[in-house]
């Protein structure tokens, strides 16, 4: 088990290096992931510009739920996608279409 934890750590490190190899592209990607998060929130905002509550939930409550969901997904992304896959693999598939 410890051996695999070590291996996992090493792979993570290498993978991050591969992604950072192309610095400009990496920065753009990081920025874009943030952009995606922002877009998701903007989507909720736009819907709530036209309605006041959704089945009794207010804007801030929905944002809270969205935040929790996003946190779970992000933790999964950090440890299993960013680290596990090789760079350049599919990444931007989910997120926005959650709704």
């Amino acid at each position: 088990m410890i051996r695999y934890m070590k291996l996992y750590y090493l792979f993570c490190k290498q993978n991050l290096k591969v992604m950072m190899e192309y610095r400009m592209d990496f920065l753009l990607g990081v920025l874009s992931v943030m952009l995606q998060q922002f877009a998701g929130i903007f989507f909720v905002k736009i819907v709530f510009d036209h309605i006041h509550e959704l089945n009794g939930w207010t804007f801030y409550e929905i944002l809270f739920i969205y935040g929790i969901a996003a946190t779970g997904r992000s933790i999964h992304h950090i440890f299993l996608i960013t680290c596990g896959h090789s760079a350049g693999n599919t990444y931007g598939q989910e997120s926005l279409t959650a709704f």
């Binding site: 992604m19 190899e21 192309y22 400009m24 592209d25 990496f26 920065l27 753009l28 990607g29 990081v30 920025l31 874009s32 992931v33 952009l35 995606q36 877009a39 903007f42 989507f43 760079a87 350049g88 693999n89 990444y91 931007g92 598939q93 926005l96 279409t97």
Partner: peptide, 15 residues
């Protein structure tokens, strides 16, 4: 490498 640009494209287009 195109990872970053692709993520960006995806975000911008779907929005």
């Amino acid at each position: 490498n195109l990872w970053g640009l692709e993520v960006m494209k995806e975000a911008v287009v779907s929005f």
